[in-house]
């Protein structure tokens, strides 16, 4: 059975949990380790910490947050944000994280994916792809980097195929157009990527209702759904999300 996963995403800045809309307008929401522990106990299948801090100071507080989160949870943790080198990856994995998520650095030096997959195993290498609608791209979606501030001129679906070939174990495509809006995942973009690769794809950005989670799996063919605002603001509990999916015939761990 292919059990689908519900994965709360903890965006952090300077070690604190935050959430924005369309990658801006951040609000602070508390301590990531505390939130992570609550989600882990409530049935989250995995957790993701995405650090949006750009400063060196902030990196230290991130590592501290990762350490405390790992100690407080017992499901796999993926950590992303600002990871540029094999040493960065090793540092995060040595703290007990199960996977790392690479984004901008993967675009700037694709060999990092290959080297990381060789050294640490594909299973722990997630490539995050931030996308924006663009009529200039064959698929209609362009890869964005540096926290969504810089267009790359690369087609998102072509890039997804490339990262799979380089050894990524999973892809996390986030639609900048949808992120934080709670208006639903970007179904066409997610499906285009999920159908183009064999590795698992996590739908990300835009979940606001239970129906959205179902759509991501059934219509966009995602293997997992990332949830942020919908979970952090207490709209639905993780359990409610999974019970809803189960009631619609989606296999989930309850």
């Amino acid at each position: 059975m292919n059990y689908r996963r519900v994965i709360p995403c903890l965006d952090t800045k300077n070690g604190r949990l935050v959430k924005g809309i369309n990658f801006v307008n951040l609000r602070e929401l508390g301590d990531p380790a505390e939130a992570g522990a609550a989600y882990s106990a409530a049935g989250a299948d995995e957790l993701v910490i995405l650090d949006i801090t750009a400063t060196l100071e902030g990196r230290k507080t991130l590592l501290d947050a990762v350490k405390r989160t790992v100690a407080a949870i017992s499901v796999p943790l993926t950590v992303g944000g600002g990871i540029r080198t094999l040493d960065d990856i090793e540092e995060i994995l040595n703290l007990g994280a199960a996977k790392v998520s690479i984004n901008t650095a993967a675009v700037q030096s694709p060999e990092l994916i290959e080297q990381a997959a060789m050294r640490f195993g594909s299973d722990c290498i997630v490539v995050a792809i931030d996308t924006r609608k663009s009529a200039a791209m064959p698929s209609g979606f362009e890869v964005m980097i540096s926290g969504g501030t810089r267009p790359t001129g690369m087609d998102a679906v072509e890039w997804a195929k490339k990262v799979e070939e380089l050894g990524a174990g999973q892809i996390l495509p986030t639609s900048m157009d949808a992120d934080g809006t709670q208006a639903g995942y970007d179904i066409p973009m997610t499906r285009a990527i999920a159908d183009a690769v064999v590795i698992p794809v996590i739908a990300s950005g835009g979940a606001g209702t239970l129906e959205h989670l179902h759509e991501a799996i059934v219509e966009a063919h995602a293997d997992a759904v990332l949830v942020a605002s919908i979970a952090h603001y207490g709209t639905y509990s993780i359990r409610q999300m999974k019970e809803f999916l189960a009631s619609r015939g989606i296999p989930v761990r309850l």
Binding site: N2, S122, P200
Partner: peptide, 9 residues
Amino acid sequence: LKVPHMGWN
């Protein structure tokens, strides 16, 4: 199905 088999079972 997707390979790797990734998740709970």
